[in-house]
């Protein structure tokens, strides 16, 4: 909890005036969207054999609502941390069940997943990691240029963020891969992907870095300058370490987003994760297997990034939280 409060409000869901309307809303939604017509209805048929149509729909809505109600009742009695984990795990299980319901051929997945990882995941990670580094450098340069008193630097930086935030990433990839050869410069597919991702995300992150730097009070700069510190030292030792607290959460967002946008590079034939997922599935008409597998791999990678972001945030928060 970020803001501590010493008034002991009863948990919202423990109040009947909240709990019952929530359940009523769940029931109404299930009934309205005819939950009984689908998989949930088929499950409920085991309890009320022979029901069909409106009766089955009503029974399904009632059963699921009771299940949700019981679940809330149990979870409410756990300590906070366990609540968070349990709810997370329950929702994750639902998503996996959803995928499972696609009637996937696990034998096929098992046969292909090795290649998907050694070729696809490795390429995706390589492109993303290199792009993340370059984009961070570009963003730092862009932010400092925007805050500088150098008109040329400001002009370039403003045009850069405008162009690369404004054009679709797909178009940027085509411009590099198909456009530059018109001028006689041929760029390979992987460097194209890295260049496009770096330039695009560097432009977004320029704004994040600029806002982060501007969030540090002027007094910090003045104090360091009055002590005789050089501008570069003030930036690297005083301003940037403090602005990291502001910069890191949105930057984590960008990294996760970039990881998935790296799939756009497949349009120029790079064998990254999404490209392989599509082509490997095509040969045997097992598209969904490969898509689900690739999606879960993306999700796992972004969970790793989330955890890394959390650790870095904690590191830069240490002075503020003590």
């Amino acid at each position: 909890m970020h803001y501590k409060d010493n008034i002991a409000y009863p948990p919202l869901l423990s109040r009947p005036t909240v709990y019952l309307p929530v359940l009523a809303a769940v029931f109404a939604a299930l009934w309205w969207f005819r939950a009984g017509d689908g998989a949930l209805g088929r499950l409920v048929l085991g309890l009320v054999p022979g029901a069909e149509g409106d009766a089955l729909n009503l029974a399904t809505a009632a059963c699921v609502t009771m299940l949700v109600g019981f679940n809330i009742f149990v979870v409410m009695r756990l300590p906070l941390r366990q609540q968070v984990w349990l709810v997370w795990a329950e929702l994750a299980a639902l998503i996996l069940l959803f995928f499972y319901s696609f009637d996937l051929s696990f034998a096929f997945i098992q046969r292909k997943i090795g290649f998907l990882i050694t070729q696809g995941l490795v390429t995706t990670l390589y492109i993303s990691a290199v792009s993340i580094v370059i984009a961070t450098v570009l963003a730092l340069i862009g932010a400092i240029a925007k805050l500088s008193s150098n008109g040329i630097a400001q002009g370039i930086a403003h045009f850069y963020t405008s162009l690369f935030r404004g054009l679709p990433l797909l178009m940027q990839i085509y411009m590099i891969y198909l456009g530059l050869p018109q001028l006689g410069y041929v760029v390979d597919a992987v460097p194209t992907g890295i260049a496009a991702l770096s330039l695009c995300y560097g432009a977004y992150m320029t704004e994040i870095f600029r806002a982060g730097i501007e969030s540090i009070p002027k007094g910090q700069w003045e104090a360091a300058r009055a002590l005789g510190m050089r501008p570069v030292s003030v930036m690297t030792r005083i301003i940037l370490p403090q602005s990291m607290r502001v910069i890191i959460p949105p930057t984590g967002n960008q990294f996760i987003s970039m990881l998935k946008d790296s799939s756009l590079v497949s349009v120029v034939g790079v064998w990254e994760l999404m490209y392989l997922a599509r082509t490997q599935g095509q040969t045997e008409f097992r598209h969904i297997e490969m898509m689900v597998t690739a999606s879960l791999i993306y999700w796992l990678m972004s969970i790793v990034l989330e955890l890394a972001q959390k650790r870095i945030e904690t590191h830069f928060n240490k002075a503020a939280t003590r």
């Binding site: 910090q220 003045e222 104090a223 360091a224 009055a226 002590l227 510190m229 050089r230 030292s233 403090q242």
Partner: peptide, 25 residues
């Protein structure tokens, strides 16, 4: 110079606040 708002560097300890400029400057 000493400022109204102190302007200590919040991400550095008291020791580092004083020692960093001594080392750099």
């Amino acid at each position: 110079m000493v400022f109204q708002q102190f302007n200590l560097f919040p991400h550095l300890t008291v020791l580092e606040n004083c020692a960093l400029p001594l080392r750099l400057v």
